[in-house]
């Protein structure tokens, strides 16, 4: 078909967590510009399987931008060259015929590589388990509706809750800091009445867990916000800092 593209891919291949990895060159031909980026890798993997080679391992699940599973650091940016999308929402029309595309896994000590482009993001799960929940019975739908919540707070909470935990913030940050993720998970509850009883214990525990997991420190470069597929705002980090300060000086824990 006309308009289809031939591309050179440089893909990070690594057998397992402990093996040495390296960038390997691949050629893909006749790629439709309407394919998603992940479909393009599917095509490459079909070729590799036919040749008897090991296909490239990469994370993916819903392929509609809501699960947070797909990762990939494409040409120096998490989720590729476009803003506010995940890799499954990235189409090949964002690239040019003949282009070389470098594909790497998320790089962070807290996200160890499992294989090729797959990293272990369970550090995020452990942070959530350390406090990203409410221990009260929130009741049924009508109970939520009977609680008066300001429209602004509801909107801010909802915007924070849009975080899909993909880890692009950590991948983009020059310090591999998880502050945007943690701040979103703290904020979504800190803004609602249900989150109040455990508000300061939560921020204290989640920040402690984040540090324990070995994520870097926030130096406010703003790279996380710029690369976040869900547009999580830096103002959540300011809220986290504020709550953490209050937790340090005025709470019982």
């Amino acid at each position: 078909m006309s308009g289809n593209m031939n591309l050179t891919l440089k893909v990070w291949r690594q057998k397992n967590k402990n093996a040495e990895g390296k960038l390997v060159n691949y050629q893909v031909k006749d790629i439709s510009p309407d394919m998603s980026f992940l479909e393009m890798i599917d095509v490459l993997n079909e070729q590799l399987i036919v040749k008897g080679d090991e296909p490239i391992a990469f994370d993916h699940d819903c392929r509609e931008g809501i699960c947070g599973m797909c990762s990939l650091y494409i040409n120096g940016r998490p989720h590729g060259p476009k803003d506010r999308i995940t890799t499954c929402q990235l189409h090949m029309r964002s690239f040019e015929d003949g282009q070389t595309i470098t594909i790497e896994p998320w790089r962070a000590a807290s996200f160890p590589i499992v294989k090729d482009l797959v990293v272990d993001r369970s550090a995020f799960d452990r942070i959530i388990a350390s406090g990203g929940y409410v221990s009260v019975n929130t009741g049924n739908a009508q109970d939520a509706n009977s609680l008066p919540i300001g429209k602004e707070d509801a909107d801010l909470s909802f915007a924070a809750a849009a975080c899909i935990g993909c880890g692009a913030c950590v991948a983009a940050c020059k310090n591999a800091s998880a502050m945007l993720f943690v701040s979103a998970k703290v904020s979504q509850l800190a803004l609602l009445p249900q989150g109040q009883p455990e508000r300061y214990l939560r921020v204290h525990n989640m920040v402690a867990k984040m540090d324990e997991e070995g994520f870097g420190n926030c130096t406010n470069t703003g790279a996380c916000e710029a690369e976040c597929p869900k547009g999580i705002s830096l103002s959540n980090i300011a809220r986290l800092n504020r709550d953490f300060f209050v937790a340090g000086i005025a709470s019982d824990n």
């Binding site: 120096g76 940016r77 020059k174 310090n175 870097g216 130096t219 790279a223 690369e227």
Partner: peptide, 22 residues
Amino acid sequence: LTRENKKARPVAYAASNPSANS
């Protein structure tokens, strides 16, 4: 901070385009 931050990313990216986001 610099020491901790370097430790948090021991392996650097081969291709990096930081000016795109900061």
